[in-house]
């Protein structure tokens, strides 16, 4: 993957985000997103059971964890795409319970998807323009009268072209989004999210399936979001990338938050190693079974 990417510059990390010890569920100086007792079960399986978590404002937070840890489900719960069985969660001081997904987006919490959702048979430019908020022409009755929305539409187009240029997609603006490569679609989805001037951008595996060259530019774009004052929360499996850009890391395993902290510290946390490698990875499971141990020793001797 992107382990061979040499960062062009070392990003400036934001520090001093938390209050007290960096432990699971610790308080933040200025949280933008707070979840309390959020629980979601599918039949007998508890996918998400988060006691308390706060996402710091103005920083890049990574949500990591092994497959099946409940990261994407937690994303869906926070953005209104799924309903938890219990719990409260708020964004910018406003409760998000029972708020439908489209209203969550209007409040400034924009997400992307693990499986990219480019709108295939719309042009790249139309994809972008769809992202803008508060469009007059999106009302059915006003849409028949172009003079009511033409000016606003031109402004949105100018903004879309400017963002496309930043993401180096402007040459593709009239092509169907379906004709873009997987990596370009990831870029388009991120660019489209910016059209609504969000305060919190939630990226679900922004690097999955993206080639190393493009990874670097995506990393720069994510760092760019932070420099523009946005908060970023992203799910990622690539530890190199997490270490490189994240200011804060939240680790999930089996639906729970098991560790939190700055990237350097969290990678050393025994709970994180347990989550990824299993809690018994360094215990000798054969310790009580002398017969097997004997047999194993013989096998090892044979090989030597």
């Amino acid at each position: 993957m992107s382990s061979d990417v040499t960062p062009t510059s070392t990003p400036v990390k934001t520090t001093g985000l938390h209050v007290g010890d960096a432990e699971p569920g610790c308080r933040k100086v200025d949280p933008i997103l707070i979840a309390d007792g959020v629980k979601r079960t599918f039949g007998g399986l508890t996918a998400v059971d988060v006691a308390h978590v706060e996402v710091p404002r103005g920083a890049i937070t990574a949500l990591i964890g092994p497959n099946g840890a409940g990261k994407t489900t937690f994303f869906n719960l926070l953005t209104g795409f799924d309903k938890p069985d219990a719990g409260t969660w708020e964004f910018d001081g406003r409760s998000l319970a029972h708020v439908p997904a489209y209203r969550v987006a209007r409040m400034g919490l924009i997400r992307t998807f693990q499986l990219t959702k480019a709108l295939g048979l719309l042009s790249v430019l139309d994809n972008m323009m769809l992202g803008a908020k508060g469009q007059t022409g999106e009302n059915l009755f006003r849409s028949v009268l172009p003079f009511l929305w033409r000016k606003q539409d031109d402004e949105i187009e100018a903004k879309a072209l400017e963002i496309l240029a930043r993401f180096k997609l402007e040459a593709k603006k009239d092509d169907y989004a379906a004709s873009l490569s997987g990596g370009q679609r990831k870029l388009l989805e991120m660019a489209r999210a910016l059209m609504s001037d969000p305060t919190l951008v939630m990226l679900d595996e922004p690097m999955a399936g993206v080639n190393p060259a493009l990874t670097e530019s995506l990393l720069d774009h994510i760092l760019d979001l932070k420099s523009q004052g946005m908060t970023v929360l992203f799910v990622e499996h690539d530890m190199h990338m997490v270490r490189h850009i994240a200011d804060w890391v939240i680790v999930m395993a089996e639906g729970k938050i098991v560790a939190e902290g700055p990237p350097q510290n969290v990678m050393q946390d025994p709970a994180v190693i347990d989550a990824y490698l299993g809690a018994h990875h360094d215990t000798d499971l054969g310790a009580t079974d002398t017969g097997h141990v004997e047999a194993l020793k013989e096998l090892i001797d044979d090989e030597q």
Binding site: T79, F81, A101, Y102, R103, A105, R106, I110, R111, T112, F113, K117, A118, L119, G120, L121, L122, L130, G131, K133, E138, R192, A193, M195, S196
Partner: peptide, 11 residues
């Protein structure tokens, strides 16, 4: 094309 994507954009 994809209603979830449109929902995520606040429509």
């Amino acid at each position: 094309e994809d209603e979830d994507a449109v929902r995520a954009l606040g429509k």
